[in-house]
Design a binder for these strands. Structure first.
Lengths: 346, 346
DNA sequence: CTCCGCACTACAAACGTTTGCACAATAGTT
DNA sequence: AACTATTGTGCAAACGTTTGTAGTGCGGAG
């Protein structure tokens, strides 16, 4: 029923190859035949069939986007940005949700592989080796994970975690806890590493609680396992931080009077809660755009296994306050900006 | 480079058609050849090329999902549910975001049409007639809009709005306002109609403010235009309600002591804010599942232009309190349950 | 006048599948 | 013994494109 290239050819009295070229290589066809063809195409409502085109060119003009959990407010801005950037390159986006399940990730990558020109793997929970193997089957850009030899976009959560810990120790907190994220999360490892180092450097104690599911419930659970004496907690993400606050308040502790809480991500949510959450802002939209750009540039120049490292920023709101120790203002110091390629230009 | 059906045929010493049938009609091929073929396929890492299959069968095993704004927390649970339901039917999901723009909707439907077996159009802003026209080009299921003759899944926001208004008038509020949603939203019209009727029935006054963008900012703006004397506001959605509360507090008004606020949607967010939001819960996940089921059943039996009307529910939390008038407990009355097909069975 | 190059277009072979049809071989009826 | 089913497989056409190659007609250079 829908018009094909053949219908257009018949209507305009040319061969199908001429119609094809009218769309894919206009400069090769005489201007007056071209306009005639275009007119017929327009009138018949002809739209090239991408499946057929993909079959012969091998390019689908689709990209896959695999996330751990769409319902986690961290992802939608990233998805949205990736999508609009993809559209700018005339691509469409398949979104898939793994429910934080490593096995589902592998299956989805394989299922999507044939239908897309490449896949954005966001916050993967798979092993590095599996990711490397998959990247041989389909172009891959990894987001929120750094793997040697693979193109990746990461947010500098290490820097963010350090700033957060410095902020807390600067406020006089000496006994800190880290509510870690899920097993398999590179980000969680980074945060742990960096937060531990920063605490040690400031002469504070930091105990790690976890792994936890990166959700409100995960944060709630942490509240129950918090040792007495802990006066400040850094959470793997905002959702956990909010759950944690909820849990602390349920137990009669006040935030930030009794316990300070810092999140990571700066989801929209965090501006609306009471107290407003102090958090490490991650540039998720920029990450989405940068990842798409890398994926689509990848074809031109496959050697470039680039790494984009996006700067994070500490946003101080109302969930952190002075601790028991001496108060010394944090040193905003050595923040290093690494602009994302393809982001600056827009 | 990737193995094709031909490679498998060669390896297992049969014709390609036999390989094809091994996957698409296993009962037609001898069990021992079948196992041999499957073994070869497995070993070669063969995965059928969906584009090629789509070309000849006309079925892509993909569905499109078009939403107004992924970053609006209302949508992710719907997307997630739709996706997992689609996967249960061996389908994948294209997600597209229109940025609340009617023109983008049309373009996206057309662009996706050839790549999918059908499209879920969520909260469309287009005109009815345009939607009807598009539904002739590609199978469509509309979510959050009721159009005669088209399959649709709607949430019974009319009922929800009525319950909300009854709740407020029952608390003694006499001067109400409705913060309307965006132009072109069927849901907003429904809410307006129903809320007005309910207010009239209770002898209360209800003024409509809007249209507004369905965002936090939209709600913030409404706070500035609120007439003195209004003691209760029903918002088009939770995001606006939260923005509204923010705005009211900025102006020194307390919620619910001075003004009561009710939202619609019950996004996760609403449980975490202070005060916790009283809201009309909409079963978004059920809607996503039901819509997918309708779309995929649609092929079997094209005559059934079904309508699924999902029940909503008033969730009373902390953002509503007594008004100036006499307090009379609301009548929970005539709540009608319309279970979604395909939901009950899972 | 001939030959070359140029601009344009037609032809046909692919891309990886599915599927109606024909054929062979086997088993079951008369 | 010659039939008819039945089962399994091969053959080839189709799906809607792209693209390398060949062919046409033309203008200009020699």
């Amino acid at each position: 029923m829908p018009a094909t290239i053949r219908d257009v050819a018949r209507a305009s009295g040319v061969h199908i190859s001429t119609v094809s070229r009218t769309f894919s290589a206009p400069h090769l066809v005489n201007v007056e035949t071209r306009t005639r063809v275009l007119a017929c195409a327009e009138q018949l409502g002809y739209r090239p069939n991408r499946a057929a085109r993909a079959l012969i060119t091998g390019r689908t003009f689709n990209i896959g986007l695999i996330v751990a959990d769409i319902a986690n407010p961290f992802f939608p801005p990233l998805i949205k940005a990736a999508e609009s950037q993809a559209r700018r390159h005339d691509h469409h986006v398949f979104v898939a949700d793994t429910n934080e399940d490593a096995a589902a990730e592998e299956e989805l990558v394989r299922a999507l592989a044939k239908q897309v020109d490449g896949i954005l793997l966001c916050s993967p929970r798979m092993s590095n080796s599996l990711i490397e193997q998959l990247s041989r089957e389909v172009p891959l850009v990894v987001v929120n994970r750094q793997i040697a030899g693979l193109p990746a976009v990461v947010m500098d959560v290490a820097q963010g975690a350090r700033l957060a810990v410095q902020h807390l120790t600067g406020l006089g907190h000496r006994t800190l806890a880290l509510a870690a994220g899920p097993r398999g999360s590179w980000t969680s490892k980074e945060i742990r590493r960096s937060a531990s180092a920063a605490a040690r450097a400031a002469g504070a104690e930091l105990t790690v609680l976890g792994p936890n599911p990166p959700t409100e419930e995960g944060g709630l659970a942490v509240a129950d396992h918090l040792r007495a004496g802990v006066t400040a907690v850094l959470a793997y993400n905002d959702l956990m931080a909010l759950g944690l606050i909820e849990g602390l308040q349920k137990r009669g502790l006040r935030v930030p009077a009794d316990v300070s809480v810092v999140g990571i991500d700066d989801i929209m949510l965090s501006r609306l809660t009471r107290p407003k959450l102090t958090t490490v802002a991650t540039p998720t939209a920029a990450a989405g755009r940068a990842a798409v750009d890398m994926l689509l540039a990848h074809g031109d120049d496959r050697r470039t296994t680039a790494l984009v490292n996006l700067q994070t920023e500490l946003v101080i709101r109302d969930s952190t306050g002075p601790g028991p120790g001496p108060h010394c203002p944090a040193d905003p110091g050595d923040v290093v900006a690494v602009p994302a390629p393809g982001v600056a230009s827009h």
